[in-house]
Design a protein around this nucleic acid. Structure first.
Length: 337
DNA sequence: GTCATTTGACCCAA
DNA sequence: TTGGGTCAAATGAC
């Protein structure tokens, strides 16, 4: 138990420290005339991510056990699993994302999460206006990858799609994208990336690709952990003295943040970072687990053992910037097959 | 020919 | 018994 607490504290401190460093960076950029708005928004996004994780850690005591590293990998194909698929499914990690449909990309954009999915079913759901589509990893047969997802449009807002993920990717696709040492692969992007490139890209993408040289290290099981919905009051976009509040501004920019009003929490908004948005920041080839996203409205009895990312230590995002380098020890053996 | 999607049937949990 | 999730044959696209 002591180890669990220690582990949690470690992660929490790590996240908060990361948030602090990012905030420092943001401050530096705010006073720099050459710094762009996109950069600010990116930093805000990262800071929010850190705090979201931190809050999740504080709020999810029940999940504490699950955060412990468990270095048992490659269990998906064990003989024991064969005859017990249904029980296994029940224990799979599950989390939900709400994605605002891009009017241009439509439903296509939903599958640009760095993995290839194959539709295997669709059903009308009782009481729901829209059918639910079932997808599984393309490599299910070849590699025994049991990751699945369900996609269904929201009844309340047809432009919002709810994506329920189940299980983590165990396919080579997932691992190779995670541990690929050189993230600079632009000539032959993964399938999902190729599709993304057909869309009108926000300037942020370009900026991040060239300016930041983002490199997400594979040190974090936490990144894939599930996060409960969290709330906070909407900040003012403009300060009293008329200065533009970039932090708030970015928060209110629904290009990067899905906002849900909640009748139960009047005065607050639900903010949900969609996976697609994160993918903009983290190209699939350099992200350990695109499916993890940041917003998971979780229903997960889950364990980190099953987390898409595996169960290594915590992560730190290391940007190509001297000012920001949270480097943490990491035993990468888990990812080396 | 290969692979993805569709769709009705089946299985299982609640 | 019912509804959700999955299977697998049929069909279509490339």
């Amino acid at each position: 138990m002591e180890k669990v607490i220690s582990w949690e504290q470690h992660n929490l401190i790590s996240e908060l420290a990361q948030g602090k460093d990012l905030a420092k960076q943001l401050r530096n950029h705010l006073v720099s005339p050459s710094s762009s708005r996109e950069t600010h928004e990116y930093l805000v996004e990262k800071i929010l991510s850190c705090y979201q994780k931190s809050l999740a850690m504080l709020n999810c005591d029940a999940l504490a056990e699950d955060h412990r590293p468990a270095f048992s990998i490659g269990t998906s194909g064990s003989p024991k699993d064969e005859g017990d698929a249904y029980k296994k499914r029940k224990t799979m990690p599950r989390w939900t994302e709400q994605v605002q449909l891009n009017s241009e990309a439509g439903l296509e954009g939903l599958h640009e999460d760095g993995y290839s999915w194959r539709k295997y079913g669709q059903k009308e759901i009782l009481g729901a206006r829209f059918p639910r589509a079932y997808y599984r990893c393309t490599h299910r047969n070849a590699q025994g990858c049991l990751a699945t997802k369900q996609v269904q449009r929201s009844d309340q807002d047809p432009t919002v799609v709810e994506i329920k993920y189940r299980g983590r990717h165990t396919c080579i696709q997932a691992r190779s994208s995670a541990i690929r040492p050189d993230p600079i692969i632009k000539e032959e992007p993964p399938k999902a990336t190729a599709i993304r490139q057909e869309q009108p890209k926000p300037s942020l993408d370009t900026l991040l690709s060239f300016k930041w040289g983002l490199n997400v290290k594979t040190e974090n099981a936490r990144q894939d952990d599930v996060f409960p919905l969290f709330t906070f009051s909407s900040p003012a976009v403009e300060t009293e003295n008329g200065e533009r509040d970039y932090f708030a501004d970015a928060l209110m920019d629904d290009r990067y943040m899905d906002t849900f009003s909640s009748p139960a929490t009047s005065g607050s908004n639900y903010f949900s970072l969609s996976l697609d948005h994160m993918a903009n920041f983290c190209p699939p080839i350099s992200v350990q687990t695109p499916e993890s996203g940041l917003t998971e409205i979780v229903s997960a009895p889950t364990s980190v053992t099953n987390s898409p990312m595996g169960d290594a230590a915590f992560s730190a995002f290391s940007l190509g910037n001297d000012d920001f380098n949270l480097d943490c020890s990491f035993d990468g053996s888990e990812f080396l097959l």
